[in-house]
Amino acid sequence: MNFILKKETILTSFYAISLSLLISKFSVDYSFSDKSIYDFFHFILLFIIFFNSWLLEAVHLNRYGKDSFINHIFLISQILVILNLLVRNSLNIKYILATLILLSVILSIQHITEYILTDKKDLMIKKLTEPFCYIHTGRTLSLLLGLILIDYSYWFILLTFIISQLFPSFISRSVHVRDINFYHLTGHLFIITNTIAISLWLSDLKINITTKIILLISIVYILLLTIYRRIFKTIDRTLTKQSGNTYIIGVYFTILELIFINLFFVLEYDWKYFLPCYACVIISTRCFNQYKK
């Protein structure tokens, strides 16, 4: 099979950087909040849903994405939406939901466009694409309800993420029709993990914390990213006929691990982040072990 978009492009890299900066902004915003259990779950939920939006685009390009003008337009549109939220001084939930809705609408149109442009001769591909259009529409409607019923916005964000979990299920059952380019997927995820780590570190420089803590964070991050790079090299990226869903879960928990470590130091050795961080290490390691050479 001839895979497409095997290498990271300038646009996909810029999207990864934009998302990383946004996630670090969420982290800074949380560090200045009351840090209640609600604030914590809201922060984690925002990370998950925005990362999920980026991931849906990455998977779309992996399976369908040609280096075409249309896909460039969709990518640029999503980047501009993210940048618009980034430049705002306030991370108001209405702005966040509006951003998520726009991202979801763009993803929906992108997938519907792919469905329309797919030749009828490729009947299996067309049938495979159709349910994804419905799932994207469901995500968009869920987020729209969150904006309308703003008091329950985070519940609708959670519902949106739950709806998104239909994608891995369909992908797993359809790899015999259209395979995942595992090499391309792991490359994308490796880049986003590193850019999030760097953006978290850069955001720490803007916070009023001691030089000692900055140095500790730097040392720990260098150590962790070195370990992650070694793990990455042990992954069999030539695998075919599989969805990569477990690997994606591992990346989710790897990034959460970086976030929890960062919060541990930024909040001056707040030990309540140690246990979830340790849990993330165990889960991510087990996920990655399934893909070793």
Rank of each mutant, 00 (worst) to 15 (best):
L5K: 09
K6H: 15
K6S: 12
E8G: 03
L11W: 06
L11Q: 02
Y15K: 03
Y15E: 02
A16R: 00
S18A: 14
S18Q: 03
L21M: 12
L22Q: 05
I23E: 00
S27D: 06
S27C: 09
S27V: 10
V28M: 01
D34P: 08
K35T: 14
S36G: 14
Y38E: 05
Y38N: 09
I44P: 07
I44A: 06
F47W: 10
I49Q: 04
E57Q: 14
N62Q: 04
R63F: 11
Y64G: 03
G65R: 00
K66D: 14
I76W: 02
I76G: 09
Q78M: 11
Q78E: 14
I79H: 04
V81H: 04
V81P: 10
N84C: 10
L86F: 13
N92Q: 11
L97C: 06
I101S: 05
L103P: 11
S104N: 08
S108F: 07
I109P: 00
Q110E: 12
Q110H: 08
H111G: 09
T113Y: 01
L117S: 07
D119A: 03
K121C: 10
L123M: 12
M124E: 15
M124L: 13
K126H: 08
T129H: 04
F132I: 13
T137R: 07
G138W: 00
G138L: 11
R139V: 06
T140L: 07
L141W: 00
L143S: 00
G146Y: 01
L147Y: 06
I148M: 01
I150P: 04
D151V: 06
F156H: 01
F156Y: 14
I157D: 02
L158E: 07
L158H: 09
L159I: 14
T160K: 05
F161I: 10
F161G: 10
F161D: 09
I162H: 04
L166Y: 12
S169K: 13
I171R: 02
R173W: 11
S174W: 04
I180V: 14
F182P: 05
Y183R: 12
I192F: 09
I192D: 01
T193V: 11
T195D: 08
S199V: 03
S203N: 06
L205K: 13
I207L: 15
T211N: 12
K212G: 03
I219M: 07
L223M: 04
L225Q: 08
T226A: 11
I227N: 11
Y228A: 05
R230T: 08
R230C: 14
F232K: 03
K233D: 10
T234N: 13
T238F: 13
T240P: 02
S243P: 06
N245H: 09
I249M: 15
Y252V: 15
F260P: 01
L267D: 07
L267T: 08
W271A: 12
K272L: 13
Y273E: 01
L275R: 14
C277P: 08
A279E: 06
C280F: 01
C280R: 03
I282Q: 11
S284T: 13
S284W: 04
S284R: 09
Q290F: 04
K293M: 10
